[in-house]
Protein backbone atom coordinates (compact mmCIF):
# COMPACT_ATOMS: atom_id res chain seq x y z
CA UNK A 1 0.00 0.00 0.00
CA UNK A 2 2.68 2.46 1.00
CA UNK A 3 4.57 1.72 -2.18
CA UNK A 4 2.05 3.79 -4.05
CA UNK A 5 1.44 6.70 -1.78
CA UNK A 6 2.52 8.25 1.46
CA UNK A 7 0.29 9.25 4.33
CA UNK A 8 -0.28 13.00 4.74
CA UNK A 9 0.75 12.71 8.39
CA UNK A 10 4.15 11.35 7.36
CA UNK A 11 4.65 14.19 4.94
CA UNK A 12 3.62 16.70 7.57
CA UNK A 13 6.08 15.27 10.09
CA UNK A 14 8.87 15.45 7.53
CA UNK A 15 7.92 19.06 6.83
CA UNK A 16 7.26 18.44 3.16
CA UNK A 17 5.61 21.34 1.41
CA UNK A 18 2.87 20.83 -1.19
CA UNK A 19 2.16 23.12 -4.11
CA UNK A 20 -0.82 24.71 -2.35
CA UNK A 21 1.22 25.54 0.71
CA UNK A 22 4.13 26.78 -1.37
CA UNK A 23 1.80 29.12 -3.24
CA UNK A 24 0.00 30.37 -0.15
CA UNK A 25 2.86 30.56 2.33
CA UNK A 26 5.93 31.36 0.25
CA UNK A 27 5.08 32.75 -3.17
CA UNK A 28 2.02 34.88 -2.44
CA UNK A 29 3.41 36.84 0.54
CA UNK A 30 7.12 36.90 -0.34
CA UNK A 31 7.19 37.38 -4.11
CA UNK A 32 5.27 40.55 -4.98
CA UNK A 33 3.91 40.38 -8.50
CA UNK A 34 5.58 43.61 -9.52
CA UNK A 35 9.00 41.96 -9.15
CA UNK A 36 8.14 39.11 -11.51
CA UNK A 37 9.29 40.92 -14.66
CA UNK A 38 12.77 41.09 -13.13
CA UNK A 39 13.12 37.32 -13.20
CA UNK A 40 10.75 36.41 -16.03
CA UNK A 41 12.75 38.55 -18.43
CA UNK A 42 16.18 36.98 -18.57
CA UNK A 43 17.61 40.09 -20.21
CA UNK A 44 16.57 42.23 -17.23
CA UNK A 45 17.99 39.64 -14.86
CA UNK A 46 21.26 39.70 -16.74
CA UNK A 47 21.46 43.51 -16.64
CA UNK A 48 20.75 43.54 -12.92
CA UNK A 49 23.34 40.86 -12.29
CA UNK A 50 25.98 42.71 -14.28
CA UNK A 51 25.28 45.91 -12.32
CA UNK A 52 25.67 43.99 -9.07
CA UNK A 53 28.85 42.37 -10.31
CA UNK A 54 27.46 38.83 -10.42
CA UNK A 55 29.06 36.72 -13.14
CA UNK A 56 26.72 35.66 -15.96
CA UNK A 57 27.27 34.08 -19.40
CA UNK A 58 28.33 36.75 -21.87
CA UNK A 59 25.54 38.14 -24.06
CA UNK A 60 26.43 38.06 -27.76
CA UNK A 61 23.34 39.72 -29.12
CA UNK A 62 19.59 40.24 -28.91
CA UNK A 63 17.04 39.84 -31.69
CA UNK A 64 13.85 41.74 -31.02
CA UNK A 65 11.97 41.77 -34.35
CA UNK A 66 11.51 39.45 -37.29
CA UNK A 67 13.22 42.09 -39.38
CA UNK A 68 16.36 41.71 -37.29
CA UNK A 69 16.68 38.03 -38.12
CA UNK A 70 18.66 39.04 -41.20
CA UNK A 71 21.41 40.22 -38.83
CA UNK A 72 21.76 36.67 -37.55
CA UNK A 73 24.73 35.73 -39.81
CA UNK A 74 26.59 38.87 -38.74
CA UNK A 75 25.89 38.26 -35.05
CA UNK A 76 27.09 34.69 -35.31
CA UNK A 77 30.00 35.34 -37.67
CA UNK A 78 32.76 35.06 -35.11
CA UNK A 79 31.07 32.48 -32.90
CA UNK A 80 31.95 28.84 -33.05
CA UNK A 81 29.38 27.89 -30.42
CA UNK A 82 26.53 29.70 -28.69
CA UNK A 83 23.08 29.34 -27.14
CA UNK A 84 19.84 30.89 -28.41
CA UNK A 85 17.08 31.27 -25.87
CA UNK A 86 13.84 33.19 -25.40
CA UNK A 87 14.06 36.07 -22.93
CA UNK A 88 10.74 35.00 -21.37
CA UNK A 89 11.12 31.25 -21.67
CA UNK A 90 10.12 28.93 -18.90
CA UNK A 91 11.11 25.43 -17.96
CA UNK A 92 14.03 25.36 -20.36
CA UNK A 93 11.68 25.63 -23.33
CA UNK A 94 12.91 27.00 -26.63
CA UNK A 95 16.62 26.83 -25.76
CA UNK A 96 18.80 25.93 -28.71
CA UNK A 97 22.41 24.94 -28.06
CA UNK A 98 24.94 25.09 -30.89
CA UNK A 99 28.20 23.37 -30.10
CA UNK A 100 30.03 23.87 -33.34
CA UNK A 101 29.89 24.58 -37.04
CA UNK A 102 30.39 22.53 -40.13
CA UNK A 103 30.77 24.71 -43.18
CA UNK A 104 27.45 26.56 -43.37
CA UNK A 105 25.64 24.35 -40.94
CA UNK A 106 25.39 24.40 -37.18
CA UNK A 107 25.84 21.39 -34.97
CA UNK A 108 23.30 21.22 -32.14
CA UNK A 109 23.94 19.86 -28.69
CA UNK A 110 22.21 16.67 -29.74
CA UNK A 111 24.65 16.24 -32.62
CA UNK A 112 22.09 17.04 -35.29
CA UNK A 113 22.95 19.61 -37.92
CA UNK A 114 20.77 22.55 -38.84
CA UNK A 115 21.13 25.30 -41.41
CA UNK A 116 20.84 29.05 -41.03
CA UNK A 117 17.25 29.04 -42.27
CA UNK A 118 16.16 26.61 -39.58
CA UNK A 119 17.99 28.71 -37.02
CA UNK A 120 16.12 31.79 -38.27
CA UNK A 121 12.82 29.90 -37.98
CA UNK A 122 13.60 28.99 -34.41
CA UNK A 123 14.34 32.64 -33.62
CA UNK A 124 11.12 33.68 -35.33
CA UNK A 125 9.19 31.16 -33.23
CA UNK A 126 10.73 32.67 -30.13
CA UNK A 127 9.76 36.17 -31.26
CA UNK A 128 6.17 35.16 -31.91
CA UNK A 129 5.96 34.01 -28.32
CA UNK A 130 5.79 30.28 -28.83
CA UNK A 131 8.00 29.51 -25.84
CA UNK A 132 7.16 32.42 -23.61
CA UNK A 133 4.81 32.47 -20.65
CA UNK A 134 1.35 33.31 -21.84
CA UNK A 135 2.46 33.42 -25.47
CA UNK A 136 3.24 37.13 -25.57
CA UNK A 137 5.76 38.36 -28.15
CA UNK A 138 9.29 37.82 -26.98
CA UNK A 139 12.94 38.56 -27.74
CA UNK A 140 15.63 36.05 -28.55
CA UNK A 141 18.99 36.28 -26.85
CA UNK A 142 22.20 34.77 -28.09
CA UNK A 143 24.80 34.10 -25.46
CA UNK A 144 27.93 32.27 -24.41
CA UNK A 145 27.63 28.50 -24.31
CA UNK A 146 28.70 27.28 -20.91
CA UNK A 147 31.46 24.66 -20.95
CA UNK A 148 30.62 22.89 -17.79
CA UNK A 149 33.11 21.68 -15.26
CA UNK A 150 34.66 18.29 -16.15
CA UNK A 151 33.40 17.05 -12.78
CA UNK A 152 29.99 16.60 -14.39
CA UNK A 153 31.19 14.92 -17.58
CA UNK A 154 30.44 11.35 -16.53
CA UNK A 155 27.08 12.16 -15.01
CA UNK A 156 25.26 14.18 -17.59
CA UNK A 157 23.75 13.34 -20.92
CA UNK A 158 23.96 16.22 -23.42
CA UNK A 159 22.75 19.55 -22.02
CA UNK A 160 24.21 21.52 -19.16
CA UNK A 161 23.93 20.36 -15.54
CA UNK A 162 23.13 23.22 -13.20
CA UNK A 163 22.85 23.83 -9.49
CA UNK A 164 19.46 24.94 -8.26
CA UNK A 165 19.56 26.69 -4.90
CA UNK A 166 16.43 27.76 -3.06
CA UNK A 167 16.97 31.08 -1.37
CA UNK A 168 14.49 31.95 1.36
CA UNK A 169 14.59 35.55 2.58
CA UNK A 170 18.16 35.73 1.37
CA UNK A 171 19.32 32.51 3.03
CA UNK A 172 20.13 29.45 0.93
CA UNK A 173 17.99 26.70 2.42
CA UNK A 174 18.24 23.79 0.03
CA UNK A 175 20.11 22.91 -3.14
CA UNK A 176 20.41 20.23 -5.75
CA UNK A 177 22.37 19.46 -8.87
CA UNK A 178 20.15 18.94 -11.87
CA UNK A 179 21.59 16.48 -14.36
CA UNK A 180 20.14 16.24 -17.87
CA UNK A 181 19.28 12.77 -19.12
CA UNK A 182 18.25 11.18 -22.39
CA UNK A 183 14.66 11.44 -21.10
CA UNK A 184 14.89 15.14 -20.43
CA UNK A 185 16.28 15.82 -23.91
CA UNK A 186 19.24 17.70 -22.48
CA UNK A 187 17.07 19.92 -20.30
CA UNK A 188 17.74 20.32 -16.61
CA UNK A 189 14.13 20.28 -15.47
CA UNK A 190 13.12 17.48 -13.16
CA UNK A 191 9.57 17.16 -14.42
CA UNK A 192 10.97 16.67 -17.90
CA UNK A 193 13.05 13.73 -16.73
CA UNK A 194 16.30 15.22 -15.44
CA UNK A 195 17.92 13.74 -12.36
CA UNK A 196 18.02 15.89 -9.24
CA UNK A 197 20.75 15.23 -6.73
CA UNK A 198 20.53 16.68 -3.26
CA UNK A 199 23.48 18.60 -1.82
CA UNK A 200 24.51 18.74 1.80
CA UNK A 201 24.51 22.49 2.32
CA UNK A 202 27.25 22.38 4.95
CA UNK A 203 29.80 20.57 2.81
CA UNK A 204 28.71 20.79 -0.82
CA UNK A 205 28.72 17.01 -1.20
CA UNK A 206 25.94 15.37 -3.17
CA UNK A 207 23.68 13.04 -1.23
CA UNK A 208 21.14 11.09 -3.25
CA UNK A 209 19.37 11.45 -6.53
CA UNK A 210 15.77 11.48 -7.56
CA UNK A 211 14.57 10.63 -11.04
CA UNK A 212 10.92 10.56 -12.03
CA UNK A 213 10.05 10.82 -8.31
CA UNK A 214 12.08 7.67 -7.58
CA UNK A 215 15.31 7.44 -5.61
CA UNK A 216 18.43 6.70 -7.71
CA UNK A 217 22.13 6.56 -6.88
CA UNK A 218 23.44 6.38 -10.43
CA UNK A 219 22.95 8.42 -13.53
CA UNK A 220 20.34 6.51 -15.56
CA UNK A 221 22.18 6.96 -18.86
CA UNK A 222 25.86 6.74 -17.91
CA UNK A 223 25.58 4.51 -14.86
CA UNK A 224 28.09 6.58 -12.90
CA UNK A 225 27.40 7.12 -9.20
CA UNK A 226 25.98 10.55 -8.47
CA UNK A 227 26.34 10.51 -4.71
CA UNK A 228 29.30 11.70 -2.65
CA UNK A 229 30.57 14.20 -5.22
CA UNK A 230 32.25 17.32 -3.86
CA UNK A 231 31.11 20.46 -5.67
CA UNK A 232 34.18 22.68 -6.06
CA UNK A 233 34.02 26.21 -4.63
CA UNK A 234 30.86 25.42 -2.72
CA UNK A 235 31.02 28.33 -0.31
CA UNK A 236 31.55 30.80 -3.16
CA UNK A 237 28.58 29.29 -4.92
CA UNK A 238 26.33 29.71 -1.91
CA UNK A 239 27.38 33.31 -1.47
CA UNK A 240 26.60 33.95 -5.13
CA UNK A 241 23.13 32.42 -4.66
CA UNK A 242 22.52 34.48 -1.51
CA UNK A 243 23.49 37.67 -3.34
CA UNK A 244 20.71 37.12 -5.87
CA UNK A 245 18.22 37.97 -3.12
CA UNK A 246 19.34 41.62 -3.19
CA UNK A 247 19.00 41.55 -6.99
CA UNK A 248 15.27 41.02 -6.97
CA UNK A 249 13.95 41.45 -3.44
CA UNK A 250 12.05 38.19 -3.74
CA UNK A 251 11.74 36.17 -0.56
CA UNK A 252 11.41 32.79 -2.24
CA UNK A 253 13.76 32.41 -5.14
CA UNK A 254 15.23 29.60 -7.19
CA UNK A 255 18.76 30.46 -8.31
CA UNK A 256 20.20 28.45 -11.18
CA UNK A 257 23.99 28.45 -11.29
CA UNK A 258 26.37 26.66 -13.61
CA UNK A 259 29.98 25.80 -13.06
CA UNK A 260 31.98 26.90 -16.09
CA UNK A 261 35.40 25.33 -16.45
CA UNK A 262 36.94 28.68 -17.42
CA UNK A 263 34.78 31.28 -15.72
CA UNK A 264 33.78 29.50 -12.52
CA UNK A 265 30.23 29.81 -11.19
CA UNK A 266 27.88 31.77 -13.46
CA UNK A 267 24.31 32.75 -12.71
CA UNK A 268 22.06 31.39 -15.48
CA UNK A 269 18.62 32.49 -14.41
CA UNK A 270 16.30 33.13 -11.49
CA UNK A 271 12.97 31.53 -10.86
CA UNK A 272 10.10 33.04 -8.91
CA UNK A 273 8.17 29.77 -8.69
CA UNK A 274 10.78 27.09 -8.04
CA UNK A 275 9.37 23.58 -7.86
CA UNK A 276 9.30 21.23 -4.92
CA UNK A 277 11.15 18.18 -6.19
CA UNK A 278 14.25 19.49 -4.39
CA UNK A 279 12.68 18.11 -1.22
CA UNK A 280 12.76 14.58 -2.62
CA UNK A 281 16.36 14.97 -3.73
CA UNK A 282 17.38 16.08 -0.24
CA UNK A 283 15.12 13.63 1.56
CA UNK A 284 13.84 16.46 3.66
CA UNK A 285 10.91 18.89 3.67
CA UNK A 286 11.27 22.63 3.29
CA UNK A 287 9.03 23.49 6.22
CA UNK A 288 11.66 22.90 8.94
CA UNK A 289 14.28 24.92 7.12
CA UNK A 290 11.89 27.78 6.51
CA UNK A 291 11.05 27.79 10.24
CA UNK A 292 14.73 27.81 11.15
CA UNK A 293 15.27 30.95 9.07
CA UNK A 294 12.13 32.57 10.47
CA UNK A 295 13.53 31.99 13.96
CA UNK A 296 16.63 34.07 13.21
CA UNK A 297 16.61 37.67 14.47
CA UNK A 298 15.30 39.90 11.70
CA UNK A 299 18.49 41.78 11.07
CA UNK A 300 20.09 42.80 7.82
CA UNK A 301 23.15 40.67 7.29
CA UNK A 302 25.47 40.55 4.30
CA UNK A 303 25.18 37.62 1.85
CA UNK A 304 28.46 36.13 3.05
CA UNK A 305 27.12 35.79 6.58
CA UNK A 306 23.83 34.39 5.35
CA UNK A 307 25.59 31.72 3.29
CA UNK A 308 27.79 30.88 6.30
CA UNK A 309 24.79 30.58 8.59
CA UNK A 310 23.09 28.28 6.12
CA UNK A 311 26.20 26.08 5.99
CA UNK A 312 26.33 25.95 9.77
CA UNK A 313 22.70 25.12 10.16
CA UNK A 314 21.64 22.76 7.42
CA UNK A 315 23.36 19.40 7.47
CA UNK A 316 22.11 16.58 5.37
CA UNK A 317 19.62 14.50 7.30
CA UNK A 318 21.32 11.53 8.88
CA UNK A 319 20.29 8.49 6.92
CA UNK A 320 20.91 4.84 7.55
CA UNK A 321 23.77 3.61 5.35
CA UNK A 322 22.53 2.17 2.12
Amino acid sequence: MSRWFVRPSTLRRRGVMGLNRRNAQLIAPLNPRRYYPLVDDKLRTKELALEAGIAVPELYGVIATNHDIRHLPRLLARREDFVIKPAHGSGGNGILVVTGRMQNRFRRGSGRLMDLEALGHHVSNILSGMHSLGGQPDRAMIEYRVRFDPLFDPISYEGVPDIRTLVYKGYPIMAMVRLPTRDSDGKANLHQGAVGTGIDLSSGVTTRGVWHNRIVDQHPDTGHPITGLQIPGWERLLVLAARCFELTGMGYLGVDLVLDRDHGPLMLELNARPGLAVQLANDEGLEHRVRAIDALPPRKVPPETRAQQAMDRFHAAARPPA
Binding site: V6, P8, L11, G18, L19, N20, N213, I215, R319
Partner: peptide, 22 residues
Protein backbone atom coordinates in the same frame (compact mmCIF):
# COMPACT_ATOMS: atom_id res chain seq x y z
CA UNK B 1 -8.89 29.21 -1.89
CA UNK B 2 -7.35 28.85 1.56
CA UNK B 3 -6.62 25.15 1.29
CA UNK B 4 -2.90 24.70 1.78
CA UNK B 5 -2.82 20.98 2.46
CA UNK B 6 -1.36 18.35 0.19
CA UNK B 7 -2.93 17.51 -3.11
CA UNK B 8 -3.87 13.88 -3.54
CA UNK B 9 -1.43 13.48 -6.41
CA UNK B 10 1.36 14.80 -4.19
CA UNK B 11 0.88 11.87 -1.86
CA UNK B 12 1.92 9.73 -4.81
CA UNK B 13 4.60 12.11 -6.00
CA UNK B 14 6.33 12.28 -2.63
CA UNK B 15 5.91 8.56 -1.90
CA UNK B 16 9.69 8.23 -1.58
CA UNK B 17 9.36 9.98 1.78
CA UNK B 18 7.29 7.10 3.04
CA UNK B 19 9.89 4.52 2.01
CA UNK B 20 12.55 5.67 4.45
CA UNK B 21 10.24 5.14 7.41
CA UNK B 22 10.52 1.40 7.67
Amino acid sequence: GRYTGYRLTELVRFRAFGGGER
